[in-house]
Computed example of a mutant assay.
Amino acid sequence: MGSLVKLMECPKPVGLQEAATQAIVSVLTVRSNRKELVRDEKSVMRLVQMLDPKYEAVNKTFPVMVVAAVLSGGSNGCRKRLVAAGAYQHLQKLAEMEVAGAKKVLQRLAGNRLKSIFSRTWRE
């Protein structure tokens, strides 16, 4: 997992970041792989670093896709680790910049699922 996250940072050859992102997202469909990625502190820090709007080496949609895949399992531990690493602040900035998928990932990362379901129901 860590090597795939490293590949996401490599700007050359063209398309390597996208291929690495797709590979990570497909691997993260398995729950144990999501837990393994979140347990690896270096990978989480690299992923959060890639979410930083000041870090221009990576297209921001790629790390957002990976974070969405990590959060898709609904594990509270994964969410807490990402928030502790600082992903929430970066995702807020990306949502303001209107990066694709950042707003939805930010809502998932924000917390209480039951509260978000009720607030969505009341708005509609």
Rank of each mutant, 00 (worst) to 15 (best):
residue 124 E to W: 13
residue 24 I to S: 00
residue 109 L to D: 12
residue 106 L to C: 12
residue 25 V to Q: 03
residue 20 A to P: 04
residue 11 P to G: 04
residue 75 S to F: 11
residue 72 S to T: 08
residue 49 Q to G: 04
residue 38 V to G: 01
residue 41 E to A: 12
residue 113 R to G: 06
residue 77 G to L: 13
residue 87 A to H: 07
residue 117 I to L: 15
residue 53 P to T: 04
residue 104 K to T: 12
residue 115 K to M: 15
residue 14 V to N: 07
residue 96 E to Y: 06
residue 5 V to K: 01
residue 113 R to Y: 13
residue 16 L to E: 07
residue 4 L to Y: 09
residue 35 K to L: 15
residue 13 P to V: 05
residue 87 A to T: 12
residue 85 A to F: 10
residue 65 M to W: 04
residue 17 Q to C: 04
residue 1 M to C: 03
residue 54 K to L: 09
residue 84 A to D: 15
residue 120 R to P: 00
residue 10 C to A: 14
residue 35 K to R: 15
residue 29 T to D: 09
residue 116 S to F: 11
residue 13 P to Q: 08
residue 117 I to H: 11
residue 11 P to E: 13
residue 99 V to G: 04
residue 105 V to M: 05
residue 117 I to Q: 15
residue 33 N to Q: 13
residue 47 L to Y: 06
residue 86 G to C: 04
residue 19 A to Y: 07
residue 91 L to S: 06
residue 40 D to H: 10
residue 77 G to K: 14
residue 60 K to M: 02
residue 93 K to A: 12
residue 99 V to D: 04
residue 24 I to E: 01
residue 3 S to Y: 09
residue 3 S to C: 06
residue 18 E to Y: 03
residue 22 Q to W: 12
residue 111 G to N: 10
residue 22 Q to R: 14
residue 27 V to M: 13
residue 80 K to S: 14
residue 76 N to G: 07
residue 16 L to R: 11
residue 96 E to L: 10
residue 75 S to K: 12
residue 72 S to I: 04
residue 47 L to C: 05
residue 10 C to W: 03
residue 109 L to V: 13
residue 36 E to Q: 14
residue 29 T to N: 08
residue 51 L to P: 00
residue 7 L to T: 01
residue 36 E to Y: 06
residue 92 Q to S: 11
residue 93 K to E: 10
residue 87 A to Q: 11
residue 35 K to V: 09
residue 68 A to E: 10
residue 13 P to H: 06
residue 33 N to D: 09
residue 76 N to M: 15
residue 30 V to N: 11
residue 76 N to P: 02
residue 4 L to D: 05
residue 97 M to F: 01
residue 90 H to F: 09
residue 39 R to P: 00
residue 20 A to C: 07
residue 20 A to V: 09
residue 45 M to V: 05
residue 95 A to Q: 12
residue 107 Q to V: 10
residue 16 L to K: 12
residue 30 V to Y: 07
residue 71 L to V: 07
residue 51 L to G: 01
residue 98 E to H: 11
residue 93 K to F: 00
residue 47 L to R: 03
residue 13 P to M: 08
residue 48 V to R: 06
residue 79 R to T: 09
residue 100 A to V: 09
residue 53 P to D: 03
residue 20 A to D: 07
residue 5 V to Y: 03
residue 78 C to H: 08
residue 23 A to T: 13
residue 60 K to L: 03
residue 6 K to D: 08
residue 58 V to P: 01
residue 90 H to N: 11
residue 49 Q to P: 00
residue 10 C to K: 10
residue 97 M to N: 02
residue 21 T to L: 02
residue 17 Q to F: 03
residue 114 L to F: 14
residue 78 C to L: 04
residue 104 K to I: 02
residue 18 E to T: 02
residue 62 F to M: 10
residue 46 R to T: 00
residue 99 V to I: 15
residue 81 R to A: 15
residue 66 V to C: 05
residue 102 A to R: 04
residue 11 P to Q: 12
residue 28 L to M: 10
residue 72 S to F: 04
residue 34 R to D: 07
residue 35 K to T: 14
residue 105 V to C: 03
residue 10 C to V: 13
residue 65 M to H: 05
